[in-house]
């Protein structure tokens, strides 16, 4: 069932479609299909369809984000989905962005969805911002004059991308990009150890509690350990996010430096 927020979204969508002179029966059919879809999937309208104005524009063929690549990947396009923790994500983005991988979005599992057209690859750079959903648009507008475009959000973290051609020009093109990576998961050493410890604890803890019976010491110890582990995890994530988010010092370009006037 749609929520009040969804109802408002759909009502305003209908008004925008009407303003674009879409026939009334067509509006009814479109909104009906959207309601069916939201009911079936249980997702929120704005999460599923994006900002209202852009979605309405795409339905009417009006100005919105224009997919001038024809709306689909080139024939020799490669797609690569991968996941990383907050200690590794920026390093992976930097490395593979310079090999022509353009992040298009973060999927529902939090994986980066990156694409590269081998025939027309160009280098990308990325940045990460910690920003609430409410302030996301404001931050995006602030970064846009520098050429940054949002390319994916996961809870309170938003990633932005920018073509290196914005500063390097044709030197950012990659006529012969290296082969695509095989790895799909990038975790720092600390997080790998943490995950192993967590997994072992989950297996061992029930046995310990079972054998401990009514011994309050074991229960209290388990609870305290859980709280300490949880706090440590939160502190670790916050520290990782603080380390690389926002503007970063320029990294090693690996490509030709910005040249002066070639003319």
């Amino acid at each position: 069932m749609t929520t009040g927020t969804d109802d408002r979204y759909l009502t305003e969508l209908a008004e925008l479609l009407r303003a674009e002179r879409m026939p009334e029966d067509r509006i009814e059919a479109v909104v009906g299909e959207l309601i069916d879809h939201l009911d079936a999937t249980g997702v929120r309208a704005e999460d599923e369809f994006g900002p209202l104005a852009e979605f309405a524009a795409s339905l009417t063929g009006g100005p919105g984000v224009v997919p001038t690549d024809g709306g689909g990947p080139a024939e020799d396009a490669e797609e690569w989905r991968w996941v990383a923790d907050y200690d590794s994500d920026l390093a992976v983005l930097d490395r593979y962005g310079r090999q022509g991988w353009e992040v298009r979005e973060l999927d529902r599992l939090g994986r980066f969805v990156a694409r590269r057209d081998r025939g027309a690859a160009m280098a990308w750079e990325y940045r990460r911002e910690v920003v609430s959903r409410r302030r996301r648009e404001e931050r995006t507008a602030l970064l846009a004059p520098e050429g940054w475009e949002p390319c994916g959000s996961w809870r309170f973290v938003t990633y932005y991308k920018r073509p290196l051609a914005a500063s390097l020009g044709p030197d950012a093109a990659l006529p012969d990009p290296p082969a695509g990576p095989r790895d799909r998961t990038f975790l720092s050493r600390g997080n790998r150890i943490g995950m192993v410890v967590g997994a072992v604890s989950l297996v061992v803890l029930p046995f310990l509690l079972w054998f401990a019976g009514d011994d309050p010491g074991v229960w209290i110890g388990g609870a305290v350990g859980g709280v300490i582990g949880g706090v440590a995890a939160v502190v670790g994530v916050r520290r990782s996010l603080r380390r690389g988010s926002g503007e970063r010092p320029a990294t090693e370009p690996e490509l030709s430096p910005p040249g002066s006037d070639p003319a």
């Binding site: 524009a57 073509p163 051609a165």
Partner: peptide, 9 residues
Amino acid sequence: GQIRGGTLY
């Protein structure tokens, strides 16, 4: 409409 950097550059 919005022309993305991946199209414009």
